[in-house]
Amino acid sequence: MSAPLLQTSGLTIRFGGVTAVDQVDFTLREAELRCLIGPNGAGKSTFFKLLTGQLPPTEGHVHLRGQDISGARPHEIARQGVGIKTQVPNVFNALSVQENLWIAARHKHTPTFATELTDKILTQLRLTGIANKEVGQLAHGQRQWVEIGTVLAGEPELILLDEPAAGMTHEEVERTAELILEINKSRALIVVEHDMQFIKMIARTVTVLHQGAVLIEDDVARVLEDARVRDVYLGKGLAA
């Protein structure tokens, strides 16, 4: 069991002349919680798309427990135990909350067990009250929860959350933070977020992306004090 849960080496994707993700070497241990921050356009969501097979890398590799998954299709990577909540909620709009979760649970389980698992997660996320509501009619914050529930129902071992707190009230943000820490008891997570208050609630190790490359990777307190991190967030150019 020497191979880390997730490892990227020289991971790169170019769109025409733009290098959106540039030579990223990233390692995640089993059951680790990692926060990924960076200004708009730093390549965070693109990095997630590379990890989940939504985009094929131009160069470099992604290894999941030592197995090369670079260039695999999204459903193949999902079957290896990677689940993602995307930045723009990807949900089944015309289906109910319950059905959204059930479809996710059904992939690994029998229909009966999928129903039980769905009920459990609905309770955990306090979604039971809106279980029969059509997801397309819900508010953005609730749709985020439904998508998180859908990811959980798939029982992945690695969970990627792209801006899970966006569009949520302060109270909801706190609950999301609690939930992430609870999930982290048994599973590894990578969380992309802009909200620094939220990052402070959950983060231990933080990786900062800037212009597609890793700027710094360190303990949360040190990262937030780092002058370069402040500079890129304030939009100042980096002094070489």
């Binding site: 989940t52 939504q54 999902a78 079957r79 089944f92 015309a94 289906l95 479809i103 859908t150």
Partner: peptide, 21 residues
């Protein structure tokens, strides 16, 4: 039947859950 309806609704999400659309 449930799964093909889900794929009609959102093919990306279905794939990210492990279904090959």
């Amino acid at each position: 039947g449930r799964i093909i309806i889900a794929i009609r609704e959102n093919e990306t999400r279905a794939a990210l859950l492990g279904y090959d659309p």
